[in-house]
Simulated assay, not measured.
Amino acid sequence: MPVDGLMAAERSIADALLAHYRVRARTLPWRSPPGAALPDPYRVWLSEIMLQQTTVAAVIPYYHRFLARWPTVEALAAAQDGDLMAAWAGLGYYARARNLLACARKVAGELGGLFPSDEAALRALPGIGAYTAAAIAAIAFGQRAVVVDGNVERVVSRLFAVETPMPAAKPELRALTDSITPDAHAGDFAQAMMDLGATICTPTRPACLTCPLSARCAARIAGEAERYPVKAPKKAKPTRRGVAWWVEADGAVWLVRRPDKGLLGGMLGVPGSDWTETGGETGLPLAGDWLLLNEPVRHVFTHFALELSIARMRLDRPGDPLEIAKALGPGQWWPRERIAEAGLPTVFARVARAAMAPRGEDGINE
């Protein structure tokens, strides 16, 4: 196809999608309607950090709670670390929460409370990578930016029938997205692409008959839309194992604060052994009458699956906090009936439910 014809085809893709978006745009709490004034950069940034690897449905209630509690970047910057981590509990990928607070403090403390408008400056902020910087630049500041998330990759891979398997196809998909991104209305275009992938060009059973780009989609024309994006064979996730030590005394349970860096960093959790593929140390930290529950808690992280056995013990009295901390790790006694308020990450919330469930003789005394 001649260059002029190719450019016209690319413009027609953007025009068709933007026309569809003006009528069918999803209503989301952080989004301005098509053609309306640009939204508050703080709200766009907050939503984009929350939406990383998390569904819109899961994010919306968290977004509302965060905005009600911390309505500005200055308010968020002043939050206590533990309060923010507790508010984030259940949303997963907890490094995002630590970066959220670090970014808020940098914007409030060094940038006068104003987010920068260009991608390079945005990428210099904690927790903001290429996708998030492009999304904020386009959506909050109206800049032309190439915004590529998982939904966009799926749409573009089908639109151009890209045969390169993922993730090797990512640079090619970004270049193709760049080729169809318009100079004007880049924020609306980015959100339109995301909406298309979320509601029409879905991973399975895409609704091609209702797609505004179906006449231009190479995968749809070939009758094999679901084959794209082409995926490389998945590697099996390793399984790690460990033991959670559930220790109670006088209606309270001992919780520890995990190190700031690393998995679930900065969160309150249940003490326990290391998590290793060999199962790690299984020795119990305190002498006493332990009950090893029959069923382990299972949880899947990004890079590994976890099987966490639960050893439970009730002390006659709380004892010396220093002695407990030495055996279980520095922490605090938390009221058992208020465990839901501790802001435990999902894996430890599951441990708590299992440990507190009414039980008969279903454990093994050791």
Rank of each mutant, 00 (worst) to 15 (best):
E295H: 07
T282C: 10
L84H: 04
W88N: 00
G113V: 02
D4R: 13
L76V: 00
D178W: 14
F141H: 11
D362A: 15
T346S: 12
L213E: 02
A135E: 03
A77K: 09
H299Q: 10
R158P: 00
A135W: 08
A78G: 08
I13M: 13
V243N: 01
P238C: 04
G5W: 10
V270I: 15
A327Y: 07
E337H: 14
P41N: 01
T278A: 13
G109V: 06
A352V: 08
G197A: 02
W88Y: 06
P212C: 04
P259D: 07
W245P: 03
P318Y: 12
V59K: 09
A138G: 08
Y228P: 00
A87C: 07
G142H: 05
A25L: 01
P203I: 04
E307G: 05
V73R: 03
L315P: 10
A121T: 13
R227L: 13
W275T: 10
R174C: 04
L255V: 02
G242R: 04
P358E: 07
Q143H: 15
G142R: 01
C211M: 00
E74F: 15
V107K: 08
N151K: 01
P203W: 05
C211S: 00
F189A: 08
L344G: 01
A78V: 04
E295L: 09
A89H: 01
H20A: 15
A305C: 14
S309A: 14
L293H: 10
G112W: 09
P318M: 09
A75Q: 03
H64D: 12
G5A: 15
L159T: 03
E248R: 12
T276H: 00
S273L: 01
H303G: 13
D260L: 15
R105I: 06
A219M: 00
R317M: 10
L268A: 05
I60D: 01
Y63V: 11
R314W: 12
A219N: 00
A86C: 09
H185I: 10
A232S: 10
T282W: 13
Y94K: 10
L268K: 04
W88Q: 04
E337Q: 14
I49G: 08
P330T: 06
V297T: 04
L84G: 00
P61M: 02
M85L: 12
T164H: 08
A19F: 10
P345D: 06
R123V: 05
L196C: 00
V351G: 09
C201T: 04
V347N: 07
P229Y: 04
A25T: 06
I324P: 05
K106P: 11
R205I: 08
R258E: 06
D118K: 02
Y42V: 00
L292S: 12
A327V: 02
R312V: 13
P335L: 02
W333P: 07
A58R: 14
F301P: 10
P182R: 11
A311D: 13
A134Y: 13
T278M: 06
A218C: 09
A340K: 07
M85I: 09
E172Q: 13
E366N: 13
Q332C: 12
P126C: 09
T210C: 12
P229L: 03
I339Q: 08
V351N: 11
V146Q: 00
K234G: 10
D188H: 07
A58L: 11
L122W: 10
R241V: 08
R205D: 12
A355Q: 09
I49Y: 06
L114T: 11
L125R: 00
